[in-house]
């Protein structure tokens, strides 16, 4: 494109503007202020309502999702807590007491609802007794809990056992209040901890 042809549109615009200026528009009285138009008000209100409703719905849905998430998390926490709840034994005994059975029953429900979850049961003893015999006693305590779980339908390969004997006390006193806390099975979730659901 040459320089002349590029200038042409601008020249045309300039001419048409000059023409327009030469015709002044007629002066008109301003129109009377229009009264409220009910239709437009209604429309506007409807629009706002609709926005508010959408907002509320969105808020509700967030809250519901939040609540659901909380519920799920609470259920997961509760399930995890129940699964890892410690059970306690009498001196030189691997017999499951009533509260230990209740705790294991709760674990069974959760294990049934969560087939991916695996547990490791660690048997522990108090400081009394022979250090060496206590390793075997701890093993028997862990095996006792495992046997209860497997007797109630939990697959044996989901439950690992180990004994720490008297090597890992939680209470270090030398009296019954410490000893009773140390005669225990601990439960560690070794697989599936992330996806744990509460029992249905």
């Amino acid at each position: 494109m040459t320089g002349k042809t590029r200038l042409l549109p601008f020249l045309l615009l300039a001419v048409s503007a000059a023409v327009a200026c030469s015709h002044k528009p007629p002066v008109t009285q301003p129109a009377a202020t229009p009264g409220p138009n009910q239709d437009s008000i209604n429309a506007e209100n409807a629009r706002r309502d609709s926005i508010a409703r959408a907002d509320a719905a969105r808020r509700d849905s967030i809250a519901r999702a939040q609540a659901d998430a909380d519920k799920l998390r609470n259920a997961k926490d509760a399930a995890t807590k129940a699964l890892t709840q410690v059970i306690y034994f009498d001196f030189d005994s691997d017999a499951l007491k009533d509260d230990a059975r209740s705790s294991l029953d709760a674990k069974i429900t959760i294990l049934n609802a969560n087939p991916a979850v695996r547990l490791r049961v660690a048997g522990n003893t108090d400081e009394r007794g022979s250090d060496e015999y206590n390793l075997a006693l701890g093993q028997r305590r862990a095996a006792s809990a495992k046997r209860y779980l497997t007797d109630h339908g939990i697959a044996g390969d989901r439950i690992d056992i180990i004994s720490y004997g008297e090597e890992r006390p939680v209470a270090t006193g030398h009296d019954e209040s410490s000893w009773s806390q140390n005669r225990r099975d601990e439960f560690e979730i070794t697989a599936g901890a992330d996806q744990i659901k509460g029992a249905p």
Binding site: E132, A136, Q139, R140, A143, K146, R147, I161
Partner: peptide, 9 residues
């Protein structure tokens, strides 16, 4: 030595 798993040692 002593060995045990789930049925005593």
């Amino acid at each position: 030595y002593a060995h045990g798993v789930e049925n005593g040692t």
